[in-house]
Amino acid sequence: MLTAILVMAGIAIALGAVLGFAALRYKVEGDPMVERIDAILPQTQCGQCGYPGCRPYATAIAKGEADINLCPPGGEDGVKKLAELLGVEPKPLDETHGVTKPKSVAYIQEDLCIGCTLCIQACPVDAILGAAKQMHTIIASECTGCELCVAPCPVDCISMVPLQEDLGSWKWKYPVFRLKQVG
């Protein structure tokens, strides 16, 4: 009996030592989890999740402070990927934070713009070009479609334009594989 206990204890100590050694030896610097979560987030920087950007949200998820379904631009697909990464059940998007919209870019109606620079200050990715009292314009290729510039505009000259599919962005569709009878 005593031998058995000693043997078990010995094994436990030995394995514990191995684990402890491994933990020290293969220690990873920094928090790769935040990086990995941030890599999944769409980087729209819209703040709809309630955090001031994608990285703060990623940090909050990694700390367990935020739920994974708060990101409307990421959509259901994004929630699924986050769930997979974190090993939790995916859940439907929390619609109190907004709904998923088709990818859009902001458009400034240039004849209305008064050059107030408010939108430039709001843009999280510096995708608006202009100077005080000069007309502003959107750099469409850099715009993430976060809509943060829409509300500040005093003359309401910014609108969101959904991106149209053209030959450049067209994708081959998933072939329809219809084995079952329809109707």
Binding site: Q43, T44, R55, P124, V125, D126, E142
Partner: peptide, 19 residues
């Protein structure tokens, strides 16, 4: 398409961080 999306996201992240 996904690679392109990823590139765009990476650019947005860089620009945001620089801002």
């Amino acid at each position: 398409a996904r690679e392109k999306e990823k590139r765009l996201a990476d650019t947005a992240r860089d620009r945001h961080e620089f801002r």
